[in-house]
Amino acid sequence: MNKVRRNRMSLLWFIMPFTLLYVVFFLYPFTKGLLLSFTDWNGISKTTQYVGFQNYLELFTEDSRFLHSLFVTLIFTVLNVAISNICALVLAVAIEWGSRSFRNLLRTLFFLPYVFSLVVVGFVWRLLYTEVLPKLSEQIHWQFFNLDYIGDPAIALYSTIFMNIWYGIGYFLIIYLAGLQTIDTSVLEASQIDGATGWVQFTKIIIPLLMPSITICIFTSIAGSLKIFDAIFVLTGGGPGYSTESIALNIYYEAYGAANRFGYGMAKAVVLAGVILFISYFQLKFFKAKEVEV
């Protein structure tokens, strides 16, 4: 009994510093936000009314822009996660088995974008999309470069995704390369003797063995994509119109933009938090199961 209590006390001592900050700067504001989501608080007015579930009702029934932003975020997430991971994985395999002597150099180069701030990256690509590529197209007569990358609502979202992939591949590449290095090459050599082709090796041996790395990369990229803000904010600001407005931007504009409907924005934030927790939970379950199978 005494020991249990002492253990409990020591646990509390150890986590106290972190917990204190966690409570003050995360739990308290988050809970307050949760409560505010049931009000019509607009940030500057002095009176705030309790409106019950009205905010929640409105965002699912009347707010087509919010639903659109859900859709935008979904596309962003699916494409960003899939393409980033596939590219990084393929690149990692190519580097590891194609040119190991250049591994360090290549890794350094491909990771470089990630050390920049997304704000910087956003401006770099803005210059690229609006000034450089059109000029390039003039010179080499390649129409593809003359697309209206951030001005055409049908393309703009893909331009932001592309930029984000460019930015993030290096991070995943490092993780996949590290994962590949843990694979025992004798397994592959043995399979080669058994006559397995490259593709079979890749899908039947490498991928399963890399599952822990894949899990972590997909987990990180999904969490990152669902809360994507900086990249879009800087490159297109959600525009033209609403075409690239992610949930994060939608909430930002709802709260800080035109309407200042903080209470309503909070309701959206709560929904988003719920969606993210939900997806993360199932994803973890799914991948944990896969790993066990292997």
Binding site: G151, P153, G239, P240, G241, Y242, S243, G257, A258
Partner: peptide, 13 residues
């Protein structure tokens, strides 16, 4: 104003 601006962008496109 911001709403008008964004909606006008949608109109333009």
């Amino acid at each position: 104003a911001d709403i008008i601006g964004k909606d006008l962008q949608d109109y333009i496109s």
